[in-house]
């Protein structure tokens, strides 16, 4: 049984594989997009239940994507977890201020904790 539909927005193919494999092994249905345009296209085709979002991306930044998601009534309730290497306070404040459910810095986060974190936020969004 699939546990939830996850969309990864990340331009590093090694990280896409890492996140996808980890979450797929735990029973999640995972898709990935390497740019904002591709992400918005995939979201309109099938609405994900949770999004993992990088911030430094080609064309549109993660912040711009997050703003667009939170402006649309169709996507504003999807929990978005930011996973980035930008760790400055200004970035963290901006991300959380735009409505991200969590903000994590890749180098300070263990991939092994990802499935539990995703489950936690999926549960939170369902009980809202």
């Amino acid at each position: 049984m699939k546990k939830g539909k996850i969309l990864i927005i990340e331009d590093d193919r090694f990280l896409i594989k890492l996140y996808s494999d980890k979450l797929s092994r735990e029973g999640f249905k995972v898709r990935a997009a390497i740019s904002g345009e591709e992400a918005l296209h995939k979201i309109s085709a099938e609405k994900p239940e949770l999004i993992l979002l990088d911030l430094v991306l080609p064309q549109k930044s993660g912040f711009e994507i997050l703003s667009e998601l939170k402006l649309s009534s169709r996507t504003k309730d999807i929990p978005v977890i930011i996973l980035t290497n930008l760790g400055q306070e200004t970035d963290i404040k901006k991300g959380l201020g735009l409505g991200a459910a969590a903000y994590l810095v890749k180098t300070e986060f263990s991939i092994n904790k990802l499935p539990a974190l995703v489950k936690e936020h999926l549960l939170k969004s369902k009980t809202k």
Binding site: F14, L15, L18, N85, K106, T107, I111
Partner: peptide, 9 residues
Amino acid sequence: STIKGYVEV
């Protein structure tokens, strides 16, 4: 962070 993640897995 990629190397770290791969090794952790």
